[in-house]
Each structure stands twice: as C-alpha cells, then as structure tokens.
Design a protein around this nucleic acid. Sequence first.
DNA 1: TATGGACCCTGTAGCAACTACAGGGTCAAG
DNA 2: CTTGACCCTGTAGTTGCTACAGGGTCCATA
Lengths: 136, 136
Amino acid sequence: MKIGELSRATGTNIETIRYYERIGLLPEPGRTAANYRSYGDAHRARLVFVRHSRDLGFTIEEIRSLLDLSDDPARDCHEADRIASAHLEQVEGKIAQLTALRDELTRIVGRCRGGLAGDCRVIEALGDHGQCQSAH
Amino acid sequence: MKIGELSRATGTNIETIRYYERIGLLPEPGRTAANYRSYGDAHRARLVFVRHSRDLGFTIEEIRSLLDLSDDPARDCHEADRIASAHLEQVEGKIAQLTALRDELTRIVGRCRGGLAGDCRVIEALGDHGQCQSAH
DNA sequence: TATGGACCCTGTAGCAACTACAGGGTCAAG
DNA sequence: CTTGACCCTGTAGTTGCTACAGGGTCCATA
C-alpha cells in the first residue's frame, strides 16, 4: 500500500510516518517505479505498535528499545516489563504532581471575587508562593 | 543584584533568565560599567511570578497575559480568573487522561510472567489496541 | 491530447520552553 | 600576574512532530 493508505489505515499523519522512517523507527519500505513508498502488513503492524505506545506515553527511545526486543524473540522479556514499569512509575508521579497542582489552582481560582486587577487575589497568589498549601 | 544572585534567589537557571528577557517576559535590566545585568526587587518579584506560574503549568503566553493584567491595575480581574479557570480545566483533562493511561499500563505490566520476548504479553499488548479496556 | 486534481517526493524550517555550548570579557584574591 | 569565578553574545541542540516550498506522477475527463 502507498503512504496515504497506510496513513488512513493507522490514523497517522503522512509526515509523521516519514519522520519515523527518518529516525529509524520504521524500516525503509520498498519503492514503486515512480519512487513511491510501498508498504506491507509488517510495516503496518509496526506502525500500529509505535502509535499505540506513543498514545500510552512512551518516548521514542523507549519504543526503540521495545521494538529491538520484539525483533529478537530470544531475549528476556523482563526488559520489556522493566521499561513499562518505569514508565508506569513516571505516569503515577505525573498524576500526583498534577493533582497537587489542580488543588492549588482550585484554591487560587476560588479566591476571585471580581473587581479590579489591582487587588486581584489570583494575580497576588501567583506572585507569592508562600500562599500555597503544598509543594509543587 | 547580578544575574547569578537573581538566579540563586529565585532558583532559576541563568540561561532561562536571559531567555525570558529575550522573549520579552522580563524587562531589560540596567547594566553595570562592565555591561553586567543589574536587577532590583521589582525584577525579582516579576521573575518569582513567572516561575511560580510556570510551576503551576501556565504557558508563556498565558503568563504574558497575566503580567499585562497585573501591570495595569485598572483592568478587570475577571480576565485573570478566566485564564486560570481555563488552565484548571486543562489540568483536570490531563489528569483524567493520565489516569486512564495508568490503568491501561497497570494492566499491561501485570501481565508479564517472565520468559522470552517472543511470547511477551507486554509487547503483544502494545501491538494490539484491541486488548485495551478503555479509550486513550 | 491537454489539463486538472489527487497523490507522491525531498529538504528545510517552525513550534514550546528551555538548555548547552563556544569563544570571549571582567574582576577580586593570593 | 595569574587563577578562577563570574559575566557577555550568539547560536545550536532537545522532543515529537507539523508545515511548507518546489517539484514529480498518475488517472480521468473534456
């Protein structure tokens, strides 16, 4: 299939597909006589893997490691588990951080009682970390 | 005070301070005879405001608007509230998204039972969105 | 046969918000 | 008088794309 079809089949931007090829995440496909890229099912599966992993927040480098792993079925599976677990930890950290941040923002927003910017509680709170309840 | 002192006083990288000046978020300070930047309390307060807002996840452009507002005390405070509320909504959306993602990752990681990468459940799950419980 | 539009190609530049040099100047202490 | 800490400008790198510019290819219709 041509790049446009692969794009539609996977919901991936054409430019993104070429980008993945450029950085070596997708193998170079064959070419037609007109120099058009020509993809098969293996390419599509690999792209689905990449997109799904990106959707789950894995970085390109993490995905590269996971792909290396899946390209070599004899290797130890624990490496994949390690990458995914480390990523999970990061996500949990991020959630905790965002939750603290949301609480702080909620409190700051709740203080607005209208009026002039000159004595705006929101602006005041932003200029004074001391008013915060928790670290962030 | 010189840029290094301001850096230590606010916990901001020196390069970042110069960057903020370059993009017009901080006003150009005076200079010493040796062409060193020379800051006062107003500069420090403004930088604290910027850093605190960045820590709370506001974008540079949002901060620019908030600063404009605080520079003009006669303006209506509701604009600040609007910016902060919109940001709060974004943070809440991000938390929801990350939570769904965490659940998916937890399920994927939990499936690892060791062994070879060839039949790794983690890698398998990444290549098959159909195994997911929820949208992400 | 000409032409229009949909598709494809390469290469480069832009985005956010920094961070990291290279290559130089200034200043106080020993 | 030299060492080391500090400062300067300007540019390029980071991540993960996205958006052109400027061109080629292919197929259907007038």
